[in-house]
Design a protein around this nucleic acid. Structure first.
Lengths: 139, 139
DNA sequence: TTTACTGCAAATCTTTTGCATCAAC
DNA sequence: GTTGATGCAAAAGATTTGCAGTAAA
């Protein structure tokens, strides 16, 4: 199995410049346990490097998306969250009581995928699926 | 089976006023085949009644949501869509190629719901679920 | 040296809100 | 006549963009 090269190497391999801003954005994304939003990335960086701009964060996220290095998830919060594509695709259970985000394993939805293909001729992209509801504590 | 009374009657029964703006908003929602967004409702009304304001649309949608008369769906378009609750809950397949919205029947996801309950102690609210992907033509 | 990348400011887009007026009841 | 609903204008929050200067290669 090939060791996944890190995002910075992939950027420079493709001819994109490795600026300090990009490196900080990459590490913020990579170090985040949960999925991180643009302004969380920004806040984390501004703390150490006060004159980065949030538009740089958005432009970098746009680039990483285009290159398939990060994955975007819309949890219906009115903002979008990102996480590294190499960490694999998750499905998300978002508790509307306490806000907990539970990651779901990929195979669980395989049968749903098959059903949709078979009965609706629809090829779902389940990589960014988010399911809202309530966890045990909150229900 | 009780005949579902229309949204206007329910509003006035609950002591809310039936203004012409509200009636036009209600009929826009009710006549829309697909799920309709706030600015689509607004555009439709302004055509005939040029001095309605979009904030009235938002305030009415907020009210209808609170009363359970309309249902909100976030298809990840950066805006929210609405449809009458009496038309039942749908699950949505959104084709990212051609934009088609395919409605899915409720029972289809029953087994998913059961699995999430059993294995994750999570009670999903599947009423507003949207699944992105590609239809036969576009895949 | 070249030109991709950045910071800044301003624009966009959706949704929300304060406030004085207006109209449904 | 009351008070809830509206229009207007402005604010808010996320994201995008134009532009001139800067720095990675």
């Amino acid at each position: 199995m090939e060791q996944p090269r890190d995002m910075a190497s992939k950027l420079s391999e493709q001819g994109y410049r490795l600026t300090p801003q990009r490196l900080m954005i990459l590490s913020a994304i990579d170090n985040s346990d949960n999925h991180i939003s643009a302004d969380e990335i920004y806040a984390q960086i501004v703390a150490k490097y006060p004159n980065v701009n949030i538009s740089t964060v958005y432009r970098t996220l746009e680039l990483l998306k285009r290159l398939g290095l990060v994955t975007e998830t819309d949890l219906g919060e009115g903002r979008v969250r990102y996480h590294p594509a190499v960490k694999g695709h998750h499905h998300h259970l978002l508790c509307q009581g306490c806000g907990a985000i539970i990651d779901l394993d990929e195979p669980l939805l395989a049968s749903l995928k098959n059903t949709l293909l078979r009965e609706y001729n629809f090829l779902p992209d389940l990589r960014h699926l988010a399911i809202l509801g309530r966890c045990l504590k909150c229900s």
